[in-house]
Design a protein around this nucleic acid. Sequence first.
DNA 1: CTCAGCAGAGAGCAGTGCTCACAAAGGAGA
DNA 2: TCTCCTTTGTGAGCACTGCTCTCTGCTGAG
Lengths: 244, 244
Amino acid sequence: MFRRSARALLSLWHTGTMKAANLRARVRAEMTEEIKQVARRHLATDGANLSLRAVARDLGMASSAVYRYFASRDELLTALIIDAYDAVGSTAEQVAAAQADPAERWVAIGHAVRDWALANPHQWALIYGSPVPGYEAPQDTVVPATRVIMLLAGVLRDALAEGRLTSVPEQPAGRFGEEMAAVAAHFGPGVPAHLVGATMYGFVHLCGAISAELFGQLNKSIDEDRRGFFEWQARATAAFAGLA
Amino acid sequence: MFRRSARALLSLWHTGTMKAANLRARVRAEMTEEIKQVARRHLATDGANLSLRAVARDLGMASSAVYRYFASRDELLTALIIDAYDAVGSTAEQVAAAQADPAERWVAIGHAVRDWALANPHQWALIYGSPVPGYEAPQDTVVPATRVIMLLAGVLRDALAEGRLTSVPEQPAGRFGEEMAAVAAHFGPGVPAHLVGATMYGFVHLCGAISAELFGQLNKSIDEDRRGFFEWQARATAAFAGLA
DNA sequence: CTCAGCAGAGAGCAGTGCTCACAAAGGAGA
DNA sequence: TCTCCTTTGTGAGCACTGCTCTCTGCTGAG
């Protein structure tokens, strides 16, 4: 059977814009992307119980053929998870870049992440909800997973460098304080542990606030102005971190 | 087939400690409880993908017999969810009752919830993780679901009444402030909106912190003293709410 | 003592993830 | 150009799932 993408790539081949050695690989990449796209659509409509067979049916292919591209359903989910992390990460990065003031940047990052989550609730559940049964996050996911928290840390680090941190949270003491100091050392020399603590605090609250909203914990209390409530909370975590 | 519970109840019946009118109903209740118990065990070991057939197998009965007690898998899950809400709620209430100082009570509630979550991670995921696909929380769950947040609100209300709130968060403004005021009115006359705001802020953070820890978001940063980190956060939300 | 209702069994349906043997088709080397 | 060999797709099949249906005994109630 001729797939649309394959045909498009063949036309590229005939116009001579592609090497023969790459053809197969690129068709494969296209097909992989197409599967992920359909899977994302299914995720958005049918919820989290993604069916490989249904995806294959939608693509007009045998279910067994999908296994040529993903060794298992878990592997497909892993790919979707990585993509999701990258999607939130990149939109947050774009929004952050547009805000000069540290506090405003902090809040804008929050809004960006929340907006993405509201637009892609099932993908949010995939990455920040309960882990899929029996699913252990592979190494490939850890780097994309850190993009948002790195952004938040960057806001505080920049503000610190510019002397714009007006206050500082209580110094993390004890063993966890040492662990934070170790993380801070990875971040650069002279980064204090409380900066890492405030970052994690803000990130934890960010995820909690979005999940609470998305998973229905706010029902029957804040139903209209959830955005306003979210911003109120984001400004609170910003203040805790020392942003004006 | 004679079930153990049925036999036990029959002995009760023979000693005359039970009314005949109740026998059937009580055997049924025992059986229902037994199913839930085995389901919880399966949940704890096999993860979230609870199999009704496997539960039935463990009980030595046909899978179709389980449907005499629960109309569907979703209904079983709902029952487990209600039980889970009640379990966290009651342990938190017990712990809270033992702490006189408001700030300490706030932190103790947090620890109690966290301890329960660490001991029953899959049940935590059931109630605070991503909602089960296609699952809409029935009305029966809303009251048990509020027990923990009610506890937190109670701490602040008592502290306010005793004049022990040392500070107050920024007044919630705009539409969400009105919604909070409406919730506060339900709580009693003279309860300020910021008290509701602080409660929700603390609860959101509590859930976020526990989920982050449980779902692996803290891996490779805080690995040893997570309890310390949690307490540091809990004291921060307490301070935000105005508890010394 | 009869009888309705309840709890169980077991077959069966449609769906799932995944495996395997097989077939076509195309790129690579002779 | 012709032959291989890898890649990609098929369809049957296995073991499992949730759920429904019919049938059968037991038992509590009248």
